[in-house]
Simulated assay, not measured.
Amino acid sequence: MTDKPLNHRAEGPTTAPPLLLGPSLGTSYALWDKVAPELSVAHRVVRWDLPGHGGSAADLIGPGATVGDLAGLVLALADSLGIERFAYAGVSLGGAVGLHLAVHHPDRLSSLAVICSSAHFNGSRPWEERAALVRREGLAELAKSADSRWFTPGFTVPELVADHRDADPGAYAACCDALAAFDLRDRLSEITAPTLLVAGREDPATPPAHLREIADAVPGSSLTELAGASHLAPAERPEAVLAALRGHFGGHASRGMEVRRQVLGDTHVDRAQARQTPFTARFQDFISRYAWGEIWTDPTLTRRERSMITLTALVAHGHYDELAMHVRAARRNGLTPEEIGAVLLQTAVYCGVPAANSAFAAAQRVLAEEDGSQDSPA
């Protein structure tokens, strides 16, 4: 055994809330390549490698290792970085480490996300057999089936498959020993950290039923199932995983969604969320994170002032559908019809009378709906 800490990569401001990310068996911290940089906008993200994987030393664990041993290495890493309390997300074996931390070290965990993982891994025998196979023959043959175990048909991440092939066989087998011995089903009700479960609907290794079992047992937890995702969801569906983690761990996106609802109303936001697709998910996240999570939350200007600026900008560019939405928002932010009219009159001077005329028409329709006024503009 060595005192060297787990190999890791830290991203994001050192003053931001810490978030540790754990990998799946056979992968490195590259599993998080499409998620970690975005999470680091609002968190100090630390992703780590399992022993014998990526850059972590193989002799950090040995035969008969347990998930508790791996959790101890994660705590030692956190200690070495001066991190006392942290949020945690992990995939598969990394998720099992998170569950162990939540049960045995609740004082260290502020919140938890368990992704494509389980409170047990279908008994000890399959893992004992795999450990024996790897100790005897190495990882080359097992790595050939990685795609079918990890991804939906036709999808692959060559770098992760290479990580599987290049892992240290002894350390990999020790991780199999840990999975063989792991079963926390009778302790799940003790978990107090806010917990999110994320399942891949096409995951053959830890099917959604495994995540539902945890969700049913952990008080106050929530479950998200991802279509089109197999076992390594952060690599295959990074946008969906990112949105789920942002919503759970907080930061600009969750605060932004709260402000977005306050200003635009639940009906509008719910409609926008219902129309969201994998193609538009990243754009919706962008809006919540930057427009609503950073700009609209800046205390330099009041919401009334921001509404007036927004109305002017929308008139200037002729975005009259958006203008109608923001007339409603302006009313929620406390502007009277007279103040809205004064803003639009100002646009007549600087944006042109035709633009202002169209703007008055759009605004009048909204005000008529809300206030019962029947007058129409010129």
Rank of each mutant, 00 (worst) to 15 (best):
residue 367 L to R: 11
residue 4 K to T: 15
residue 281 A to M: 10
residue 93 L to F: 03
residue 148 S to W: 01
residue 75 L to A: 12
residue 123 G to P: 00
residue 293 G to L: 13
residue 343 V to W: 05
residue 83 I to T: 07
residue 230 S to V: 03
residue 142 L to Y: 01
residue 5 P to W: 14
residue 288 S to L: 12
residue 362 A to S: 14
residue 263 V to Y: 01
residue 197 L to Y: 09
residue 138 G to W: 02
residue 122 N to I: 00
residue 320 Y to M: 12
residue 82 G to W: 14
residue 356 A to M: 08
residue 52 G to M: 07
residue 363 A to M: 08
residue 116 C to K: 02
residue 122 N to F: 08
residue 317 H to C: 15
residue 214 I to Q: 11
residue 369 E to H: 05
residue 323 L to Y: 07
residue 113 A to I: 02
residue 237 R to C: 11
residue 260 R to D: 03
residue 133 L to F: 02
residue 228 G to I: 09
residue 92 S to Y: 07
residue 153 P to R: 02
residue 207 P to R: 13
residue 194 P to Y: 03
residue 108 R to S: 02
residue 131 A to L: 01
residue 203 D to T: 10
residue 301 L to F: 15
residue 326 H to D: 07
residue 301 L to G: 10
residue 272 A to G: 00
residue 272 A to F: 07
residue 39 L to N: 10
residue 284 Q to L: 15
residue 97 V to Y: 07
residue 142 L to Q: 06
residue 243 A to N: 09
residue 313 A to L: 15
residue 333 N to Y: 04
residue 198 V to R: 10
residue 145 S to R: 08
residue 85 R to L: 07
residue 34 K to G: 12
residue 331 R to W: 04
residue 95 G to Q: 11
residue 123 G to N: 04
residue 221 S to A: 15
residue 281 A to H: 02
residue 105 H to F: 05
residue 293 G to Y: 04
residue 348 A to I: 10
residue 15 T to M: 13
residue 141 E to N: 01
residue 264 L to T: 05
residue 254 S to G: 09
residue 303 R to V: 14
residue 335 L to S: 10
residue 370 E to K: 04
residue 80 S to R: 13
residue 313 A to R: 15
residue 83 I to Q: 05
residue 224 T to Q: 12
residue 351 C to I: 00
residue 144 K to V: 00
residue 339 E to N: 11
residue 136 R to S: 02
residue 36 A to H: 13
residue 103 V to G: 08
residue 149 R to W: 03
residue 297 T to G: 12
residue 181 A to D: 07
residue 361 A to G: 11
residue 374 Q to H: 14
residue 98 G to Q: 08
residue 234 P to C: 14
residue 37 P to E: 14
residue 361 A to N: 14
residue 282 R to A: 11
residue 330 A to Q: 06
residue 187 R to Y: 03
residue 128 E to A: 04
residue 181 A to G: 08
residue 97 V to F: 00
residue 83 I to F: 09
residue 268 H to C: 04
residue 156 T to Y: 00
residue 188 L to C: 05
residue 13 P to F: 14
residue 124 S to H: 04
residue 193 A to N: 04
residue 338 E to R: 15
residue 334 G to C: 09
residue 296 W to A: 12
residue 312 T to H: 13
residue 266 D to K: 11
residue 368 A to H: 10
residue 229 A to C: 08
residue 131 A to R: 02
residue 300 T to H: 13
residue 278 P to D: 04
residue 161 V to Q: 12
residue 226 L to G: 09
residue 12 G to T: 12
residue 128 E to H: 03
residue 275 R to H: 12
residue 178 A to Y: 06
residue 244 A to T: 10
residue 365 R to Q: 15
